[in-house]
Design a binder for these strands. Structure first.
Length: 373
DNA sequence: GATGGCCTAATTAGGACTTCCGGTGT
DNA sequence: CACACCGGAAGTCCTAATTAGGCCAT
């Protein structure tokens, strides 16, 4: 009532000092226009904790230690001491364990770039490593990368100018460095040790400094796309969102560096994609857990309840239940096999299979999910 | 009626950009 | 001239933490 009365009196008064009054009332009684109109939209997403998250310091290697992460001193508003919100999980920060991507769909720009660098559809087409050992990469098609980023952030006006500003903020935070004298070339200060490197060519060339072949690459891009324009990058955006199996690029090869994870034989593409997309497009989030809550998830982990579910009515829940049931069974079977082989596990670790699925190691869980599709 | 626990919506603080800009270098 | 690049400043968006208030049981 106070607000209404104040608003009413404000809008009806004929005061020569309207400005000061407006300021006064806007600060004391009147909500802002945005407050009135804006309807809070709550998106409930269920993420399997730990699947994405377990990125501890040990899984990162620093590529560049000359600059400590500058502390971004903030800000004017201070009221009372509160717990600080978790910052972007930069590789140098220790306390970031299990904070990776906390909060659902948040994907930071540097994470986005890392994903692109592990995505055959865009690497080396639009972004590529120029020196994977040093974490140096190049935005081969800066406009396309910016548009992909804008698409991800739902910012249709995103361009390289804007994205570049965000990249430059990473200098201060010690996440990125600029490679002097080379346009569109940046360097990650740290990389996850399980990074997968997609390089163009046969692998004999990627370590060379091929930054001068920009025009050549652009022409190659034009050859590979419909018309070599940004429109073709849009097509790529759609392809990426559809998560279709990546088109095989004959000139591409994937290899792990000797200093990083080694892999005897490359994983199947779909499985690798499951591992490489642990964030917003994570398979378990988008395809298997569309509407269930965490509480429901816990309940569903009881196999009796899972088996008693019927597909009618709640198809997606039923699907999730089936998935969880399958996971539990597979894990139980695996435990039996491991046990028979004298596995290294401590006794009783797998004693409660029905309640363990949520604690499964991320790669294991994801690979099971992937193969379950 | 007082109390405490639970739940939910609103508020607040702060991180991560986004937008704009003026400027420099290639 | 176009483009990449730089960094300041202000704004937006989103999320986590906190607070306030309602409901219910005891």
């Amino acid at each position: 009532m106070e607000t209404l009365v104040a608003a009413d009196s404000f809008f009806n008064m004929d005061c020569p000092e309207t400005l000061s009054l407006e300021q006064h009332y806007s600060q004391t009684f009147l909500p802002s226009l945005g407050d009135v109109i804006t309807t809070p939209v709550t998106q409930v997403t269920v993420s399997a904790e730990g699947i994405v998250g377990a990125v501890g310091q040990s899984q990162w290697q620093s590529l560049h230690t000359k600059k400590p992460a500058a502390q971004l001193q903030s800000k004017k508003r201070s009221r009372k001491p509160r717990h600080r919100r978790a910052e972007s999980p930069t590789p140098d920060i220790i306390v970031k364990k299990n904070k990776y991507n906390k909060g659902g769909n948040t994907l930071y720009l540097w994470q986005f770039l890392m994903e692109l660098l592990q995505d055959r559809q865009v690497c080396p087409r639009y972004i590529k490593w120029t020196n994977p050992h040093a974490g140096i990469f190049k935005l081969v098609n800066s406009k396309a990368v910016a548009r992909l980023w804008g698409k991800h952030k739902n910012k249709p006006d995103m361009n390289y100018e804007t994205m570049g500003r965000a990249l430059r903020y990473y200098y201060q935070r010690g996440i990125l460095n600029k490679v002097e004298g080379q346009r569109l070339v940046y360097q990650f200060t740290s990389l996850p040790k399980d990074m997968i490197y997609i390089t163009d060519g046969d692998g004999s060339k990627e370590d060379e400094d091929d930054d001068d072949d920009n025009s050549g690459n652009e022409e190659d891009l034009s050859d590979e796309t419909d018309d070599g324009t940004i429109a073709s990058s849009d097509q790529s955006v759609e392809e990426e969102e559809d998560l279709q199996p990546p088109q095989k690029k004959s000139s591409s090869s994937i290899r792990a560096l000797t200093t990083h994870r080694t892999r005897a034989a490359p994983r199947p593409l779909d499985q690798r994609d499951a591992l490489l997309r642990p964030t917003s497009s994570s398979l378990i989030q988008e395809q298997h857990l569309p509407i269930v809550s965490a509480e429901m998830l816990r309940n569903l982990q009881n196999l009796q309840k899972i088996q008693s579910l019927q597909p009618t009515g709640h198809a997606s829940v039923f699907k999730t239940a089936q998935l969880l049931g399958s996971l539990c069974e597979r894990q139980a079977a695996a435990a039996v096999v491991m046990g028979s082989k004298g596995a290294q596990e401590t006794p009783g670790k797998r004693s409660q299979q029905g309640q363990k699925s949520s604690q499964m190691e991320p790669p294991q869980l994801l690979s099971l999910i992937s193969s379950d599709q």
